[in-house]
Computed example of a mutant assay.
Amino acid sequence: MTARFSLRVNNDLDLAALTGLAVAAEDAGIDQLWVSNDLMMRSAPALLGALFQKTTRLHLGIGIMNPYSVHPAELAMIASTLQEMSGGRFLLGLGAGSAEFLSWAGIPQLKPLTDTRAALRAIRALIEGARPADVEGAGDGWNRDAYLRLPATKVPIYIGAMSPRMLAFAGAEADGVLALLFPPEHYTTASELVAAGADKAGRSLADLDMPACVWLALDEDREKADRALALKLAYYGAAFSPYLLSRAGLVQEDFTPALDALREGDEDAAVSAITPQMLSLGISGDPDAVIQRCRELQARGATHLSFGPPLGPDPVAAIELLGRRVLPQLRRTA
């Protein structure tokens, strides 16, 4: 099998920082770079428009956009335009989004699965030169004038999914699936749910790209890498899905001491409150430790590994180390 690798970064980074990461990723032999589009931060479509001018080989994706804060008609416009600008290097991540983030703007998230399915069908139809009005399940309100006045093209659409039903839907209809894995070993269960959805639709898991999406912190100094991941877990751990935490024998309340310490500005106490069990929700350490965990994922069938933030105490240095020390070993394993 051929191993593939991607990175995921947040849209809180400015263009200069993001450009540095993208150039480092391309130099390291990374296949894809995904930029989040979290509400009230920088615009991922605008950032990607600039990044396509700074890279030549790297595929760039938005992971993810939702059909609530941006209408599917505009999502199709964005996807088609970026694909045209990039010469075919754009990837669209689509999902229901965060109900909490949407609530900031008073946007209700009514039927996450139904609305995401309708958006996928409508966006795909528009991009490929068809009319959503002619597509079953593409949502209401489309009339005969709803079609893109642009050349028809293809854009791979990945579904951001964590729940069993969304994973099965992704397997049935998407080109790929972005499933956050806490812990990484959840890949086995997630891939089985995607495979079941694909099988029911007459497809197979080989018909779509399913990266194993993990959090990574990498540094030559293992303690520094562990600290970077611990701080990330201290901030976000209490908000993780109870379902996913239960897979690791944890509950949201386990992270309360770390979050409280972080709120008080005591990073050392926050790091101390993150136990080895919590730390195992991601992958951290020196190259040898990271290679070992990643090989375990490959043994579970993962052919595409996707590394998300924090990446390390120095993200650019972590990407360079990833390309120099880790990826060659993982390609050899594959």
Rank of each mutant, 00 (worst) to 15 (best):
D254K: 04
I283R: 04
D31L: 03
D134T: 08
A76M: 07
T114L: 13
P72A: 04
G95V: 00
A190E: 01
A206V: 08
S306L: 14
F5H: 06
L33D: 00
A174F: 07
E100Q: 15
C294R: 05
L18A: 00
A50G: 11
T81H: 00
P287Q: 01
K154Q: 15
A196C: 09
G87A: 10
G95L: 03
S69T: 13
E320V: 09
G139D: 05
R57P: 00
A28Y: 04
Q277C: 06
P242K: 00
P242C: 01
A198C: 06
G61H: 03
S246V: 10
A239L: 14
L13F: 05
M166W: 00
A261F: 04
A273E: 02
R203M: 06
R247Y: 09
I123S: 15
L33E: 01
G137H: 14
S306N: 06
I283Q: 05
D115G: 05
N143W: 11
N143E: 13
G20L: 06
D209S: 11
N37K: 03
F182D: 05
D254I: 09
L94T: 04
A125N: 08
R42S: 03
Q53T: 02
S191N: 11
I107L: 06
D145L: 12
M41D: 06
E192V: 08
A201M: 06
R124L: 07
Y236A: 11
V271P: 05
L216P: 02
V155N: 05
L48C: 02
A73D: 07
L193I: 15
D221R: 09
S280P: 03
A270H: 01
L322S: 01
D31W: 02
E264R: 14
R144Q: 14
R121G: 07
D260W: 03
S284D: 03
R324C: 11
V9D: 01
L110Q: 13
W142N: 10
L193R: 10
I319A: 01
A130E: 14
G265Q: 10
Q252I: 15
D38C: 10
L58Y: 00
A289S: 13
F169T: 09
A46T: 12
P45M: 12
A96R: 04
R4Q: 09
L7S: 03
I319W: 00
T188W: 03
A168T: 05
A99F: 12
A269T: 01
A122H: 10
L244M: 11
Y235I: 06
A217R: 03
G308E: 05
S43C: 08
E136A: 13
L21V: 03
D14N: 12
S284L: 04
